[in-house]
């Protein structure tokens, strides 16, 4: 595969991962986590692991983001630290 694409997606994965744990807004953190999952899915698709990419797209970017948003909706939107 094109290695430039690989580098770009890997950088975005790291950026969204760090952003997801540093951001104060928990709703934003769950959305960033969904973005992280989707980028990981792209990375796996590039490496040829299509089954894993499919699982990541459906579980990581799809359902778990909804569950996180639901949990934020029921608790609080601001993190304590």
């Amino acid at each position: 595969m094109v290695w430039q694409l690989d580098i770009i997606i890997l950088t975005l994965v790291i950026i969204s991962g760090i952003a997801a744990i540093t951001i104060k807004d928990l709703l934003g953190a769950s959305v960033l986590f969904g973005a992280y999952s989707f980028l990981m899915c792209l990375l796996w698709a590039i490496m040829g692991a299509v089954d894993v990419a499919f699982t990541e797209a459906s579980v990581g970017a799809g359902v778990s983001t909804v569950l996180f948003v639901a949990a934020v909706f029921q608790t609080t939107r601001r993190s304590k630290d």
Binding site: V50, D51, A53, F54, T55, S58, V59, G62, V63, V66
Partner: peptide
């Protein structure tokens, strides 16, 4: 093709 019980089940649940 790629897919199977886990993915299909998650999409059905979604």
């Amino acid at each position: 093709s790629p897919g199977g019980g886990f993915q299909g089940g998650v999409i059905l649940g979604a």
